[in-house]
Nucleic acid binder design. Structure first.
Length: 644
DNA sequence: AGCAACCGTGTTTTT
DNA sequence: CACGGTTGCT
């Protein structure tokens, strides 16, 4: 192996053999390269079978990219690289019967979770004006991030007592519906491993080397899981950066890294502090910003790169000018040979993309928006997937409720409410109630409609057993009458939905040709676990628009960070405590270090937010950039940039 | 049961 | 402003 292109600490990390390793890798320090080449080293030089290595990344997209690089390096049998959630889903498909679920479980998305919370609230007679479904689901999610099952949560007050009660019913209901939410994927796997040492031993035998990327973003249960798997071999490489902890709202906790030495005795720590990405100016600004954090876990990032240009802090009158300014700057850059794809526009909240999109549309600038709405979140896609879910797992009430009357077949809300009431009393799924239909209160005609719906699902289940996935999907669309209903409606909207369903069909066909086992179960997992960040739409040369969170791990020559205003960044919901502000500042740090050559920060004096215009104040973070590495600029409508 | 019109509400970030 | 949820009408 030729390691001449690596610096000393990088080489040290790559050549690390057995035992725990913590790589504190600053932004742009080449950490992914280190992970990939350490795997190469383990396989090539130490003769470790690739199949015993497990790589964990933060997104499916990152996993895919790493897999690709490994394939190039190691040939056609690369190690498994996946996210925590994908790995757990895969494990549970094998082992879940150990905790009383069956293998055909479904994974709930956010909407399903909130929907189920609402059902639970109805059953518990919780006043919806006093308790918001979303805050209950948040509470449940927080508990799960900490690895707490309902019985392990100690309520601190009367309010929390009710929340815990809701959590308990919710969890019972989930089991009844043979379904899992995101948190369950991790927690149930941990539970199986701790209750069944034999099973854990099997996995420990299979996987003996672990490399976890973005370790600072792991939460308590994910940490527990990796500790279980690493067992006594402790062959764990954790890679992370304190200063890029931006997911604590999802339960990630720094103490995982800080306490690692206790759980992993003999831990070797290596710092990667040389940055290969940014100019000196950008790095200087980023370092200055992060040095304002109270808990300063300073990494002294440095670079041999060029000095570079100063950072531009541009003030606009409003968000329209902001869009125009960015559009014009990009067009100017193109005249000097830059491509659209050399540019990214970052923002704190998704809503800010709109004004930029409008400006780009007006000028024909090619762009792609990452995040926001997923393909799999479109109504028609979710409907079809819900048919698939009901076929695989008829107990999945949330899927069933979705399709019961879509297209409309005369089984409306009142009928559903009656069915739901019986299901609640008997503690069974809706499907069971509908199948039995052994209670009074429904008219004969409604009963007939329910029976024919059940027959439809039964027919589809039969097809699922005998046909391949794409055939099944086609039959779902036609036998359910879904496609026909859209065609009959004939509106632009409906025809657009038809197009999207065609698209779904090609996604499924693609899935069939690339997967070893293209079952409906596998496709449902794929749809549930694919995030909006994972879909890399085929836009050859275009500007990328996304949130700062979505930009983590990426880099662009030219980066615009828009909406640098108090209450927007830092966000008003994140200004409550010092810890909140610190996290916002880390976000600012992440945003700044995405830029290779040029960083442009924009502020509007007036901005329209949620329909009302408001005066804005420049973000405090702008003032934290040293004067000698920024140019403060004022932009006026004529397109002139004048210096203050 | 299904549609249209209304109101009020509220917008972080996401596996 | 835009969506969700509710109401009231057919």
């Amino acid at each position: 192996m030729d390691l001449r292109s690596f610096n000393a600490p990088q080489r040290e990390a790559i050549l690390h053999g057995e035992g725990p390793l913590l790589v504190l890798a600053g932004a742009g320090s080449g950490k992914t390269r280190v992970i990939v080449h350490r795997i190469e080293y383990l396989v090539r030089e130490r003769g470790i079978p690739a199949s015993s290595i497990l790589g964990i990344t933060f997104t499916n997209k990152a996993a895919g990219e790493m897999r690709e690089r490994l394939e190039k390096l190691l040939g056609n049998e690369p190690p498994l690289v996946s996210t925590f959630h994908s790995f757990c889903a895969r494990t549970l498909r094998q082992e879940i019967t150990l905790i009383g679920y069956s293998r055909n479980f479904t994974i709930f998305d956010d909407d399903d979770v909130v929907g189920l919370v609402k059902v639970v609230m109805r059953e518990l007679n919780l006043d919806p004006t006093k308790f918001k479904p979303k805050s209950i689901s948040n509470f449940i999610d927080n508990c799960k991030n900490k690895g707490l099952w309902p019985d392990q949560v100690v309520p601190e007050n009367w309010y929390q007592e009710i929340l815990v009660r809701a959590y308990r019913s919710y969890q019972e209901k989930l089991k009844l519906l043979n379904s899992l939410d995101f948190g369950d994927l991790i927690n149930s796997t941990v539970k199986i491993f701790s209750e069944h040492p034999g099973v854990l031993a099997r996995y420990q035998e299979h996987y003996q080397w672990f490399l976890v990327d973005e370790f600072q973003d792991t939460n308590t249960t994910q940490y527990r899981l990796i500790r279980q798997l690493a067992g006594s071999r402790l062959n764990l490489q954790a890679t992370g950066d304190f200063n890029q902890t931006i997911y604590s709202f999802r339960g990630s906790c720094l103490s995982n890294i800080i306490n690692m030495g206790k759980d992993f005795p003999g831990l070797r720590t290596i710092k990667l502090e040389e940055n290969y990405r940014c100019t000196k100016q950008i790095l200087k600004a980023a370092n200055a910003i992060i040095s304002h954090n109270s808990q300063n876990l300073a990494m002294a990032l440095w670079t041999k790169n060029a000095e570079g240009k100063r950072i531009i802090c541009a003030t606009m009158e409003n968000e329209l000018d902001e869009g125009q300014f960015i559009a014009e700057t990009i067009e100017n850059n193109r005249l000097s040979g830059k491509k659209y794809s050399d540019h990214a526009v970052l923002y704190r909240v998704n809503a800010l993309s709109r004004s930029i999109e409008e400006a780009f549309l007006k000028r024909g600038i090619h762009y792609i928006v990452i995040g926001g709405f997923r393909f799999f979140d479109r109504k028609e896609i979710k409907d079809c997937l819900s048919y698939m879910r009901s076929i695989v797992n008829p107990a999945d009430d949330m899927a069933l409720r979705r399709i019961l009357n879509v297209p409309s077949r005369g089984i409306g809300d009142t009928t559903l409410a009656k069915l739901e009431k019986v299901a609640g009393e008997r503690k069974v799924s809706l499907w069971e109630v509908m199948r039995a239909l052994d209670f009074s209160g429904l008219s004969a005609s409604v009963k007939d409609k329910i029976r024919s719906f059940i027959q439809l699902v039964d027919t589809l289940i039969e097809l699922h057993n005998t046909q391949n996935l794409s055939t099944l999907l086609k039959e779902i669309m036609s036998l359910s009458g879904y496609m026909a209903a859209l065609v009959t409606e004939g509106s632009d909207k409906a025809l657009n939905r038809v197009d999207n369903l065609d698209e779904l069909l090609s996604v499924v066909t693609e899935f069939e040709s690339t997967r070893e086992v293209p079952t409906a179960e596998a496709f449902i997992d794929y749809a549930a676990l694919m995030s909006s960040l994972d879909i890399s739409a085929g836009c050859r040369d275009c500007v990328t628009l996304m949130t700062i969170h979505a930009a983590k791990g990426l880099e662009f020559p030219q980066v615009f960070l828009i909406g640098c205003e108090e209450k927007l960044f830092p966000h008003e919901r994140c200004m409550g405590s010092q810890a909140d502000i610190d996290e916002e500042r880390r976000l600012m740090y992440v945003a700044s270090t995405r830029a290779k050559e040029r960083l442009i920060l924009t502020t509007a004096e007036i901005r329209r937010i949620a329909g009302t215009v408001a005066n804005r104040k420049p973000s405090r973070f702008l003032a934290e950039i040293p004067d000698d590495c920024k140019d403060e600029v004022w932009w006026v409508e004529e397109g002139l940039v004048s210096y203050r």
